[in-house]
Amino acid sequence: MRVLIVEDDPLIADAVRQALLKSGFAADIVTSAEAAASALQAESFDLAVVDIGLPREDGLHLVRRLRAGGKSTPILMLTARDGLSDRVNALDLGADDYMTKPFEVAELVARCRALIRRANSAANNQLSFGGLQLDMTHHALSIGSRPVELTQREWSILECLVLNAGRIVSKDRLMSSVTDWTEELTPNAIEVYVSRLRGKLGDAARIRAVRGMGYRIDEKNK
């Protein structure tokens, strides 16, 4: 796993690189958008961490240029500005995630890992989350090397939760993922499916309820 860090502040760039190295990534630093563009052209990276506030060409501009040129490398943006417009801009332009400075290094590493995982799952239809391995093509779940039997509805709920990992998924959304137009399902039924699913997942991942909002899947060690 190789990450390109595009950051002109040496202290931040170094800290991010050290943290990624410690977590088993390889990481290179460039300090300008121009250098980032040529590095991404010349070599293969699994992820780019891009600061918005770069000298000359800024990070937003770089993202737009990369996406326009067909580069699909996942991008995590960093910014020192608050203001939602930056975030909306960043995500609109094709960035995959966004963090505001100052950030916790541990969280940055976790987000990098999630972005790389999502990109890989899209590429080979295999998705791993915590102790779970999901085969998206065959709708098959295994924990470690042990296959786990799931009903169609349990699979739909798990798939919906894992694809939205880190976000809270409302009951309505889960309901629409398990039913077609002809079926009627009560919110209570979702609770029943979730509780069965929890039993089958055991310690490999945790589905937590958020009062008034829905469910979120967490890696167990979190």
């Binding site: 800290a15 100052p102 950030f103 290094v105």
Partner: peptide, 21 residues
């Protein structure tokens, strides 16, 4: 203010990240 935000946050981010490591 945007410039001040940038000037203040960038070193703070670096210091905080290095300290965390």
């Amino acid at each position: 203010l945007e410039s001040a935000a940038h000037q203040l946050r960038t070193p703070l981010t670096g210091v905080q990240a290095q300290l965390e490591l």
